[in-house]
Simulated assay, not measured.
Amino acid sequence: EDDMLEKLHHHGGDLMHKGMVDVSGDMTRHDEERLYRLISSHLHHTGSARAKEILDHWADYRPKFRKVMPREYRRALVDMERMKLAGGESVP
């Protein structure tokens, strides 16, 4: 995964830091591309019929996926975006 992130989005090295990642960037961008590549990789390595079905009918399956993240992490990302839009001022 780390190699893929480095190659695709120049975000490598995050996994080597024991979970410490740079959250200053937009962590919601490229979700669809990342998901598609993960499923493609799974198909390549396992020959999964389910993965093939999903990829063959991507337009139908894509809306069924939901991004899940801890509430506090999501809240922190929203707070950081508000600060950015407000010109760096602190958020209450």
Results as ranks from 00 to 15, higher is better:
81 E>G: 00
66 R>E: 13
71 R>W: 01
23 V>F: 09
52 K>L: 14
56 D>V: 04
46 T>N: 05
68 V>G: 08
78 V>T: 04
64 K>S: 13
8 L>N: 06
80 M>F: 03
6 E>I: 01
92 P>M: 08
7 K>M: 02
83 M>Q: 11
31 D>Y: 09
4 M>N: 10
56 D>T: 06
88 G>I: 01
18 K>F: 14
34 R>E: 06
51 A>G: 12
49 A>V: 13
78 V>E: 03
45 H>I: 03
34 R>L: 09
57 H>T: 08
53 E>P: 04
54 I>Q: 13
24 S>G: 12
22 D>V: 00
11 H>K: 15
45 H>G: 00
16 M>E: 14
72 E>T: 08
3 D>H: 06
18 K>Q: 14
42 H>D: 06
74 R>D: 06
42 H>L: 15
41 S>Y: 04
62 R>A: 15
40 S>V: 00
65 F>N: 07
38 L>Q: 14
23 V>R: 12
62 R>C: 07
1 E>Y: 04
9 H>F: 15
23 V>Q: 10
6 E>R: 15
4 M>W: 14
70 P>Y: 09
57 H>E: 10
5 L>Y: 11
28 T>V: 00
57 H>M: 05
87 G>C: 02
52 K>V: 01
63 P>T: 07
88 G>V: 05
28 T>P: 00
30 H>W: 13
88 G>C: 05
90 S>I: 06
9 H>N: 06
7 K>T: 01
50 R>E: 15
10 H>S: 12
88 G>T: 05
44 H>P: 00
3 D>T: 09
25 G>P: 01
78 V>L: 08
79 D>C: 03
1 E>W: 03
1 E>H: 03
18 K>H: 15
42 H>G: 05
64 K>C: 14
83 M>A: 14
19 G>C: 07
4 M>T: 07
30 H>K: 10
87 G>P: 04
53 E>R: 15
10 H>E: 06
80 M>L: 10
46 T>K: 07
55 L>F: 11
53 E>G: 03
47 G>V: 07
